[in-house]
Simulated assay, not measured.
Amino acid sequence: MSPALIDVVTGWLEHGGTRILVDPGDAELAGAVADLVAPPCPWVEDGGASSKRRLAELSEEVGRIARALAALSASDMEQALAEPPHAGAVGNASLVRALIRLRKLRGQHFMPELFADPAWDILLDLAIARIEGRMVAVSSLCIAAAVPATTALRWIAQMTEQALLVRQPDPRDGRRMFIGLSDQASAGMDGYLAAARGVIAVAG
């Protein structure tokens, strides 16, 4: 399919397991046919990187920051996290935007391909959308993932299967499908951002 049809096509698909190609070249088409003949391990990603390992690294990163926060004194922790609910939401939005800007900044000094991490880019984009009360279309999320659309769709499918993302039909257009964080992923991002605020407060 073409990029313009991403939202419509993904809205039609009720179940995972479908391989979607966006403006594929001859090599990608040949690879897809080869996968039909001998399906690859579902966790093998482009370039030989393991998406399962990537997702595990995300959890490990959250754990490292949580342990650093736990090492703070009780007074430091209370000062870092004691915010009224509305202020916390605003603070989280600013923090997520800063994280996104820092990720993009690396591409100005190094080859962007070195830092491809679509799962984390997807989580960050959906986290700020949740804070701001916005719905995110599949096509928009593909752009936020900062990888080719075919790869982004594969990550979205895998993360949905892992119960990190949920599909949300567009109430105004049944052909479109939105993507949001699951309750599990929302709780994980809230915990990560709270821990990150604490670490930043100590570093400052």
Rank of each mutant, 00 (worst) to 15 (best):
E132R: 12
D35G: 12
E132T: 07
A129L: 09
Q108L: 11
D76Y: 06
S186V: 13
E132Y: 06
A144Y: 07
D170R: 07
D183S: 11
E113R: 10
I122M: 04
V138L: 00
L114H: 06
E45I: 12
L29V: 04
G88K: 05
S140E: 10
P40S: 15
A127D: 07
A80F: 00
G174Y: 04
V22H: 02
L164Q: 15
H109A: 14
T10N: 03
C142W: 00
V199K: 14
R197I: 06
T10Y: 02
G48K: 03
I6H: 00
L126G: 01
F178M: 03
E83L: 13
A71G: 14
T18L: 00
A127R: 09
L181A: 02
V90M: 13
T151P: 15
H109V: 06
D121G: 10
T151R: 11
V138H: 01
V199P: 08
V8K: 05
R97H: 08
S75T: 05
N92T: 06
Q108K: 15
A149L: 04
V8W: 12
L123P: 05
R54N: 05
P24N: 04
A98I: 00
G204C: 01
A71V: 11
I6M: 03
P171E: 00
L124W: 12
M189S: 03
E57P: 08
I156R: 00
G91R: 07
V96N: 03
A27F: 08
G174S: 12
G204W: 03
A74E: 14
P118L: 01
R172T: 13
A74F: 14
V62P: 14
R64D: 10
A74M: 08
V147A: 00
S2C: 15
T150S: 09
A66R: 12
R101T: 08
T150Q: 01
D76K: 08
G88C: 13
A119D: 09
A27S: 10
L102W: 15
G16Q: 03
R67C: 07
T151S: 15
M1P: 11
A157M: 09
Q79H: 09
M135Y: 08
F178C: 07
Q168K: 15
A32N: 00
G11I: 04
L164S: 12
L124H: 02
A70W: 11
W120C: 13
G31S: 11
A137T: 05
G191I: 07
D190A: 10
